[in-house]
Simulated assay, not measured.
Amino acid sequence: MNYIKGFVPWIAFSALSSVVGWQWGALVALAATGWAILRDRRSGVTVDAQILDLGSAVYFAALTAVAFAAPHSVLEQYDGALSSVWLAAIAWFSLAVRQPFTEGIARRQTPREYWGTAAFRKVNTTVTLVWTASFTATAFAAFACDALDAPTLVRVAYQAVGCGVPAYFTHRYVARVRAARAALEVQTAIPAVA
């Protein structure tokens, strides 16, 4: 569940915005993102492994500035949709530059000897594609809900599905890949019987 840590600022923003206002939600999310970046840099995480965090910092810095400068801006009405669009943009960008954002997260729980392998790249490209598709679909759902003034339950449901489906996929897919790798290692370690 290490990959969920990257979304903590987004979850905090979503939760706090409705309680204390979007300005303070954005500011707390920015602080949480900054703390995560600094913590990871101190522990040796490279910048290329922080695509999600750096993209989040840019978004929350801009949103905080706008929210405090114009607290009654029409952007507040679309902050959920804009968040999904930005997450999709980060994910699409990471794929375009051939640095799937999930790679940085996966490196924190995968032995270094696997990082340069084609299999590691393929797994992370696949996982990032699923998250990217989900962010994109969630952005469309958010704009539709805003346009149709959908009830809160519908908004919570699409957010839960938009996060839950790729999280479940990631967990199952990575577990299946690890099991296959472990089986292959066992199989190659056993000498052939004549």
Rank of each mutant, 00 (worst) to 15 (best):
135 F>V: 11
13 F>K: 02
71 P>N: 13
106 A>C: 06
5 K>G: 14
170 T>R: 11
116 G>D: 14
62 A>I: 09
178 R>I: 09
106 A>V: 10
81 A>C: 04
4 I>C: 03
30 L>K: 03
20 V>Q: 04
174 V>I: 08
130 V>T: 06
194 A>P: 13
114 Y>V: 13
160 A>I: 11
18 S>L: 10
165 V>M: 14
68 F>I: 11
191 P>G: 00
158 Y>L: 08
193 V>T: 09
144 A>D: 11
32 A>I: 10
140 F>L: 12
35 W>S: 04
140 F>C: 13
149 D>A: 10
22 W>Q: 11
65 A>F: 00
60 F>C: 04
95 L>S: 07
194 A>L: 11
115 W>V: 02
92 W>T: 00
172 R>I: 07
89 A>I: 08
163 C>E: 07
35 W>H: 08
165 V>C: 12
144 A>I: 12
45 V>K: 15
124 N>L: 10
141 A>P: 06
165 V>A: 09
57 A>R: 06
109 Q>F: 15
57 A>W: 11
161 V>M: 01
119 A>L: 15
38 L>C: 14
40 D>A: 09
30 L>E: 00
136 T>Q: 01
153 L>G: 14
114 Y>A: 13
99 Q>F: 06
174 V>A: 07
191 P>Y: 00
60 F>I: 05
118 A>R: 13
30 L>G: 03
175 A>N: 08
171 H>V: 12
63 L>Q: 04
147 A>E: 08
184 L>M: 09
136 T>R: 00
76 E>Q: 10
161 V>L: 01
59 Y>D: 07
35 W>N: 01
3 Y>M: 05
95 L>M: 05
89 A>T: 05
25 G>A: 05
158 Y>H: 11
191 P>E: 01
91 A>C: 07
60 F>E: 00
118 A>H: 09
59 Y>M: 08
160 A>Q: 09
146 D>H: 12
172 R>C: 10
141 A>S: 09
25 G>P: 00
18 S>Y: 09
64 T>G: 00
84 S>C: 10
75 L>A: 14
101 F>I: 02
189 A>Q: 07
69 A>D: 10
52 L>K: 08
81 A>Y: 01
28 V>A: 01
125 T>L: 05
168 Y>F: 10
194 A>S: 08
62 A>C: 09
159 Q>M: 15
146 D>G: 08
89 A>N: 05
10 W>C: 02
177 V>F: 11
28 V>M: 02
13 F>S: 03
5 K>N: 11
2 N>M: 04
12 A>W: 13
20 V>N: 02
185 E>I: 14
109 Q>C: 13
54 L>S: 05
125 T>M: 04
62 A>E: 03
126 T>A: 01
89 A>G: 00
134 S>I: 04
186 V>W: 15
127 V>T: 03
95 L>C: 07
32 A>T: 04
159 Q>V: 14
94 S>W: 01
43 S>F: 13
168 Y>A: 13
